[in-house]
Measured scan of single mutants.
Amino acid sequence: TIDEIIKALEQAVKDNKPIQVGNYTVTSADEAEKLAKKLKKEY
C-alpha cells in the first residue's frame, strides 16, 4: 500500500540509505518527500 511505501521511505531516510521504489531511486529526505507527495496524488 501507499502507507507502506511511505514508511519504507521514512525508514530509509533515517538510515540514510538510498532506496528503490518502483522506477524511482530515492537518496535523500527531500526526494523521499517529493516522491511521497507524488504517490499520494496518484493513488
Rank of each mutant, 00 (worst) to 15 (best):
K38D: 10
K40S: 08
Y43W: 09
D15F: 12
D30E: 15
S28M: 01
E4Y: 10
K41R: 07
K34R: 11
P18C: 05
A12C: 10
Q20D: 05
A32L: 07
S28Y: 04
E10P: 00
K38S: 08
E42T: 06
V13R: 05
V21E: 01
K14A: 11
D3E: 13
L35T: 02
Q11G: 06
E42Y: 09
Q20M: 09
T25F: 15
V26G: 02
V13H: 05
K41G: 12
A29H: 04
A32D: 00
K7N: 04
N16I: 03
K40L: 13
Y24W: 09
E33V: 08
K40Y: 10
I19S: 01
Q11V: 05
L9I: 09
A29E: 03
L9N: 01
L35V: 05
V26H: 00
E31D: 08
I6S: 01
I5K: 01
L9A: 03
D3H: 12
Y24V: 11
E42A: 07
T1I: 08
K34P: 00
Q11D: 08
L9R: 00
V13S: 07
A36D: 01
I6L: 14
K38N: 05
T25I: 14
N16M: 09
A36H: 05
T27L: 15
K38C: 15
I19G: 02
Y43P: 07
V26E: 03
K14N: 07
T1Q: 08
L9E: 00
I2R: 04
E10G: 04
I5Q: 02
D15S: 10
N23P: 15
K14I: 15
S28E: 03
K14M: 12
L9S: 00
T1G: 11
K41M: 12
K40I: 13
A36I: 15
I19D: 02
N23S: 13
Q11F: 07
A12R: 01
K37E: 15
K41L: 15
L9K: 00
T1S: 14
K40N: 05
E33L: 14
V26R: 00
K14D: 03
Q11E: 10
N23V: 12
A36W: 13
N23Q: 14
A8M: 13
G22Y: 07
I6M: 06
V13Q: 08
S28P: 02
K38T: 08
I19P: 02
A8T: 07
V13Y: 08
P18D: 00
Y24I: 11
L39Y: 04
K40M: 12
A32Q: 01
I6D: 00
K17C: 03
K41D: 14
